[in-house]
Structures are given as C-alpha cells and as structure tokens.
Simulated scan of single mutants.
Amino acid sequence: MEKTQNRYEAASVEELRHAGRKIVTLKGMEIGVFALGEQFMAWRNICPHAGAPVCEGPVCGTRLPSLVYEYKYGKDKEIVRCPWHGWEFDLWTGQHLVDEKVKLRGYKVEVEDGLVYVVM
C-alpha cells in the first residue's frame, strides 16, 4: 500500500526570498523553510545535539579547510549555526559540518503558483 503524503503551505516565494527563512508550525512541528538562491529547503527546527531551535540560529558561512595560519571563509549564507552551542549545518544537505553521522531532519519542498509547500 502506498503511503499518502500531505503538503502544507509554508510561505509565498516572494516572502521567503525577501526574509531568507521562515519558521512555520506544521502538524504540530516547527519547520524552518529557507531560501537558497532559487531553491528552497525545509528542516525540522530541532538540533540533534541538544534539542535547540537550530533554524533560528544565524545563517552564515564558515571557515573552510586551509593551511595553518590561513583562514578561508566560504559557503556564505549556506550554513545555519545552532544558537545554543554553535553546531554548524549545511543548509543544502542538512549535514553537520564535522560529524558525518549527524544530520538535520529534512522535508521535501514543492513550489506552485508562487507558493512554497512542505511535503510531510
């Protein structure tokens, strides 16, 4: 038997592009919906480390691997940093930047008629 999935309106495309992100409550869960260029990503607003509202943290870049005394900055506006303990997650993949076993829970996003939907 095929499981039926529901989609829920999260925001308008224009609103997300202007604000960069929006925290919405869908099915009793907080979901962070982020605009990344022309694409949109949705992540559960719970940090896997300690349950913090990770999607409310700063959207920024990070230091890239580099030589000693060399600091390269990259992935600007592609990283969300947990507001409690500073854990960093890639907004494209949900992957923790250091521990490959740690990842945010993501949801499929669809865009139709200028609206962004989260599929759950």
Rank of each mutant, 00 (worst) to 15 (best):
K3L: 14
R7A: 09
R7I: 05
Y8C: 08
Y8N: 01
E9T: 11
E9S: 09
E9Y: 05
A10I: 10
A10F: 13
V13G: 08
E14H: 05
E14D: 13
E14Y: 03
E15H: 12
E15S: 13
E15G: 00
L16M: 05
H18R: 15
H18G: 00
A19L: 11
G20D: 07
R21H: 11
K22T: 02
V24E: 00
T25L: 05
T25E: 15
M29S: 09
M29W: 11
E30F: 05
V33D: 03
A35E: 06
A35F: 01
L36F: 09
L36I: 08
L36Q: 10
G37M: 06
E38V: 03
Q39Y: 02
F40T: 06
F40E: 12
W43Q: 05
R44G: 03
R44Q: 07
N45C: 11
I46N: 01
I46Q: 03
C47Q: 09
H49T: 08
P53N: 06
V54E: 04
V54N: 08
V54H: 11
V54C: 13
V54W: 14
C55D: 09
C55Q: 04
G57L: 13
G57I: 13
P58V: 15
C60A: 15
G61Q: 10
T62Q: 14
R63G: 10
L64I: 00
L64S: 08
L64A: 00
S66L: 12
S66C: 14
S66K: 08
L67N: 14
Y69T: 13
E70A: 11
Y71K: 13
Y71S: 04
K72F: 14
G74Q: 01
K75G: 01
K75N: 15
D76S: 13
V80T: 04
V80P: 02
R81L: 11
C82W: 00
P83R: 14
W84F: 09
H85S: 14
W87H: 12
E88V: 12
F89W: 10
F89R: 06
D90F: 02
L91V: 09
W92N: 14
W92G: 02
T93E: 04
G94R: 07
Q95Y: 07
H96G: 12
H96P: 10
V98C: 07
V98G: 04
D99W: 00
D99H: 03
E100T: 05
E100R: 03
K101L: 12
V102I: 14
K103G: 06
K103M: 12
G106E: 00
K108R: 05
K108Q: 00
K108W: 06
K108S: 06
K108N: 06
K108L: 10
E110R: 09
E110G: 07
E112R: 04
D113Y: 02
D113M: 07
G114I: 00
L115I: 10
L115F: 11
L115S: 08
V116T: 01
V116R: 05
V118M: 06
V119Q: 03
M120Q: 08
